[in-house]
Nucleic acid binder design. Structure first.
Lengths: 343, 343
DNA sequence: CTGAAAGCGCTTACAG
DNA sequence: CTGAAAGCGCTTACAG
C-alpha cells in the first residue's frame, strides 16, 4: 500500500534493485560498486557494471540527497539575470563549482526588498548546499538570519560582519575614478550615481566625494544625479544634469551601462566625448572596449570574485579548495577621457 | 543502525516528527495540514501550524522529491552564460516557471560538442522535471535520445522533428535584414556570419543569399566573413573583409555583438557609420539602442521565446498554462543605415 | 476526522 | 567479500 511508484521522470528508469537482480547480486553490492566503496570482487564488479550499462541505470539523485543531506546544488541571488554585469560572476562561480559537480541555480531579487526576501526563503526551502547572496536591499540582520538557517552562505558585494564575504572596495573604486579625472586636469566633475541607498552606489559616491575633498574641491550636490544602474538611467541622469545648467568638463558614471547611456544623451545634446566632456565608467564590461569612444573605466574582476566566492564556499563544505586570487580594482585607460587644456 | 542523521544542512532543522510531537498529533496529520489535504479539524490545524511556526519547520525537499518524483527544478543548456543574449531568454523562462514554483539551473555548453554532451548527461542525472536545450553542436539524434531519458524536453533555437521546439526563423531574419539594406539602395552588401556549421548562423547566411538572389544579384563569397558571435569576432571579420579590398557600402552582421565589433573596426579604418558604410545587426540587445550610431537591427523576441518555451513545458507537465504569443521578427530602424545616394 | 504502517530509492553499519 | 536490514524524511492508502 502506501505510495505507488511515482510517475515522475526520475522513477521511470531502472532502480538499483533491478540492476541487482539483473546482475544476480544484492542492491548493497551495486551501491558499493557505484560508489567505489570497499573492496568488491572484480568479477562481481564487472557483472554489476555490465547490468548498469545494459539497463541504463542512473541512481536516483533525490534518494541520494535525502540520505546524504547534500543536493549538489548551490543557489545564487542577484539583482537581475539580465545585463552584462552578472555574467562573468556566474561564470566564475560555475567554473569552480562544476569541478566539484555542483550546479548553480540563479534567481533574481529585482532590487526589491520584498522580492529578495521571498527569493531567499524559497532558496532556503530547497535544500541547497550553498547560497551565494548578492543582496541589494536585505539588511545585515536578515542576511545573518539566512546564514543561520542551514546552508553555507557567502555574501557578495558587501561586507557583513560575522559572515564570509567577498566584496570589492567600491569606495576605493569611486576614489580611483575621480582621482584619475582630477589628474587629467578636470575640476568640475559630475557624477551619475547608482540608486540611492544601495551599498555599492553609496560607496562609489563616497569615494568620489573623498577624492574631491582631498583635492580641496567643494562637492557640489547639483553635479550629482542618480540612475538605476542601467543604460536608461544613465541617459536620464545625464539629461537631468545638463538641464541644471551647471557646467562640468568630466563625468564619472557609477557603472559602464549608465556611462553608455550618458554618452548617448551627451551626443544628442551636441556634446562630444571626450572633446567636450570626458567620461569615466565602472565595471569594464566587454562592451566598454567596443563602444566609440572606447570607455575608460574601473575594472572590477567579477569572474575572479565568483571564483573566490566559490572557493570560500567549498572550503566551508569541507572540500580542499585553492586560495583565491587577490581582487584588485584597476583603471583601464581607453579613449573617453582626455586631459583638460588648462587654457 | 544503518544511516545516521545526516550532517547536511537539510537535516539540521526540525523534522515532521518533531512537529507532530510538539503538537501532540501524528506525522500524518502534520503532513495533511501542510498539504491542505482532506479535512483536518480546525483545532488541530491551528495547533499544528503553531508548532510548525515555533519550530521553524521546513519540509525536507529531498524527501518530497523522492516520493513525488518531482524536483521542481528545470535545467537550461545554453552556449554561454555571459553576454547580453541569453539574459532575456532566462528571464522569460524564469518569469513563467517561478509562478509554478519551479527553479531554473543554467549550464553552459561553450559551443563545444563534447561539453554540451557532458552537460546534458549531467543534467539528465539530476532528476530535473524539465530540460530546455539550446544546443549549438548536438545532433538531432542526440537530442532525441536526451528527450527519451525522462524529463520533459523543449528544444530552443532550432526545429527538431518529433520534439517540442521553440524556434525563430533565422533564414527569414537574414532575408529581412538584407532586403532592408537592398531597399535602401545598397547593392554591395557584406555579411559577417556566425560560426560555420551553427544552425542559426547558417540560416541567416542563407537568408542573406536568398535576398540577394531574389534581387538578381550575384552572391560574392569574398564579401562574407565568419565570426564567433562576439564583439571580438565582428571586429576581426570586418578587418578581414576590409583587407580583401572588395568594396561594399553596407554590412549585415549576424548579431548585434558582432555588429558593434564591426563598427569599432570600421571606425579604426577611418570609415564612418553610416556615412561610409551602413550597418545592420541582429537580436536587438539593449545596447543596440545606446551605441552611437544606434544600431538598426532585427529584433528577436527572446524573452517571449523563453515564456513560450516555459508554457509549452508546463503543459507537458500537466499544468494548465496559457498560450504563448506569436513570435515575430521585426526590423528595428535606428541610425546605422542610410539610403545610398544613387548618384 | 485521525493514526499506524508501508514504502519512495538509496546507503551503510552490522553480521557472517 | 557479500547480503539482510534499518533508516533518511516524508506522504498516502488503509483502518478505525
Amino acid at each position: 500500500m502506501a505510495v505507488q511508484r511515482g510517475e515522475g521522470q526520475v522513477g521511470e528508469g531502472a532502480r538499483i534493485r533491478d540492476v541487482a537482480k539483473a546482475a544476480g547480486v544484492s542492491p548493497a553490492t551495486v551501491s558499493r560498486v557505484l560508489n567505489n566503496s570497499a573492496g568488491v570482487g572484480e568479477a562481481l564488479r564487472k557483472r554489476v557494471l555490465g547490468a548498469v550499462e545494459r539497463l541504463q541505470y542512473r541512481p536516483n539523485p533525490h534518494a541520494r540527497a535525502l540520505l546524504s543531506g547534500r543536493s549538489h546544488t548551490a543557489g545564487l541571488l542577484v539583482a537581475e539575470v539580465d545585463g552584462p554585469f552578472y555574467g562573468p560572476l556566474y561564470r566564475g562561480l560555475e567554473r569552480v563549482l562544476s569541478e566539484h559537480r555542483l550546479h548553480l541555480i540563479m534567481a533574481s531579487g529585482r532590487r526589491r526588498h520584498e522580492v529578495e526576501w521571498e527569493v531567499v526563503n524559497s532558496l532556503l526551502g530547497r535544500g541547497l548546499d550553498l547560497l551565494f547572496l548578492w543582496p541589494e536591499a536585505l539588511s545585515q540582520e536578515e542576511l545573518r538570519w539566512a546564514a543561520a538557517q542551514g546552508p553555507k552562505v557567502v555574501i557578495l558585494g558587501q561586507e557583513v560582519p560575522g559572515l564570509p564575504c567577498v566584496a570589492l572596495d567600491h569606495a576605493h573604486g569611486g576614489y580611483l575614478a575621480t582621482r584619475y579625472l582630477l589628474q587629467a586636469g578636470h575640476l568640475r566633475i559630475a557624477h551619475v550615481a547608482g540608486p540611492q541607498g544601495m551599498q555599492d552606489a553609496v560607496s562609489r559616491l563616497a569615494g568620489y566625494q573623498r577624492a574631491l575633498a582631498e583635492r580641496g574641491l567643494e562637492v557640489d550636490p547639483e553635479l550629482v544625479a542618480y540612475g538605476n544602474f542601467r543604460e536608461s538611467g544613465g541617459y536620464r541622469a545625464a539629461r537631468e544634469l545638463l538641464s541644471r545648467g551647471r557646467p562640468f568638463s568630466a563625468l564619472f558614471a557609477a557603472n559602464d551601462q549608465m556611462a553608455i547611456g550618458v554618452a548617448a544623451a551627451l551626443e544628442e545634446a551636441g556634446l562630444r566625448v571626450p572633446q567636450d566632456v570626458s567620461l569615466m565608467g565602472y565595471d569594464d564590461i566587454i562592451m566598454a572596449r567596443y563602444v566609440r569612444p572606447a570607455l575608460t573605466t574601473i575594472r572590477q574582476p567579477l569572474e575572479e570574485v565568483g571564483k573566490a566566492a566559490a572557493l570560500r564556499a567549498l572550503q566551508a563544505l569541507g572540500y580542499a579548495a585553492g586560495t583565491p586570487q587577490e581582487l584588485a580594482l584597476e583603471v583601464i585607460e581607453r579613449s573617453s577621457v582626455r586631459p583638460l587644456d588648462s587654457s
